[in-house]
Design a protein around this nucleic acid. Structure first.
Length: 290
DNA sequence: CCACAGGTGTGTC
DNA sequence: GACACACCTGTG
């Protein structure tokens, strides 16, 4: 069955969805750009993982985006939004032509998408990311999911996939158990955040009417969430495209290619997407990959 | 043994 | 406000 929605053609199979002629989509670049910790390469060009409580396998060849193990309903309810399919990345990249470095970076990784990730998962994951490295961040998140999440899928080789733990699962586990999952000094932050999500004090809808600065200030009331983590949450979950996370890499980039005064304003309303291109470009061209 | 990893809270001036 | 400084843990 094929449908046409907003000028894109989509084919639905028994157990997969194919979106035809998708521009600017690379599963590899998207999942390796540091915004998401739960997808891994399972074969050439294919990435598998769990998001929003569902297991999928994602690949994109010749402009055809294939999502395996997705129903038609899940595609419309979850993945269309998750992969930001409505956003015009081509136009966004064109708007970056005022800057040579940005032009180079965006043509290097024009297939990166800004994912629309679950708020709680993003908050928790980026708290874990502080003063940490990506392999260990992934390891901790997998361990938490295996212990406190739900079994979602087991593949033919016997590998099991788990959902990210719900906030109340971590809250009832307690700070001590969270610490024992090798989260270190971040345990108290995770516990505190979990409690606030259980209370319902934090909800994604709350941020819809807020601008980016308001969003970041609100997020920073969570312990362990500073400007960098708050910007990541705003960008990778709440879709505030002008949120501009500044980490050690971006700091280096700003020093190397720009002036000390260059701030997010210079990059405009899609500063966050610019940040992703620059970050990924700089890391790849300096030999750091995963 | 020590530095470092996609930072942040706390205590100083 | 602009600084140091510690912080769990694994890896080089």
């Amino acid at each position: 069955m094929t449908e046409c929605v907003k000028n894109i053609n989509i084919t639905f199979d028994e157990n997969s969805v194919t979106v035809h002629n998708v521009k600017n989509f690379s599963a590899c670049d998207t999942f390796n750009s540091g915004q998401c910790f739960r997808f891994n390469k399972i074969s050439e060009g294919v990435f598998a993982g769990v998001a929003h409580g569902r297991y999928i396998e994602v690949s994109c060849e010749n402009g055809d985006l294939k999502i395996q193990r997705s129903t038609r309903e899940d595609f419309y309810n979850i993945w269309y939004d998750y992969f930001d399919l409505a956003f015009d990345y081509e136009g966004c990249i064109k708007s970056f032509s005022f800057d040579r470095t940005l032009q180079k970076a965006s043509s290097f990784c024009s297939g990166i998408r800004i994912l629309h990730q679950d708020l709680w998962e993003t908050v928790c994951s980026f708290i874990i990311s502080q003063n940490n490295n990506i392999p260990r961040i992934k390891k901790i998140i997998e361990a938490l999911s295996e212990k406190y999440g739900n079994l979602i899928y087991t593949d033919s080789s016997g590998r099991s996939y788990y959902s990210f733990p719900a906030a109340d699962a971590l809250y009832s586990a307690g700070e001590k158990e969270i610490f024992e999952m090798k989260t270190g000094f971040r345990a108290k932050y995770i516990y505190d955040a979990a409690q606030r999500f259980c209370d319902g004090k934090v909800a994604a809808e709350k941020f819809e009417s807020m601008n980016t600065d308001e969003t970041i200030n609100e997020l920073m009331t969570i312990k362990g969430v500073g400007p960098k983590v708050a910007s990541c949450i705003a960008l990778f979950s709440l879709r505030k495209y002008d949120a501009f996370p500044v980490d050690v890499w971006v700091k280096k980039i700003l020093e190397k290619y720009y002036t000390p005064q260059t701030g997010k304003e210079y990059f405009g309303k899609y500063a966050g997407i610019a940040q992703q291109y620059l970050f990924y470009y700089e890391r790849c061209t300096n030999g750091v990959y995963l």
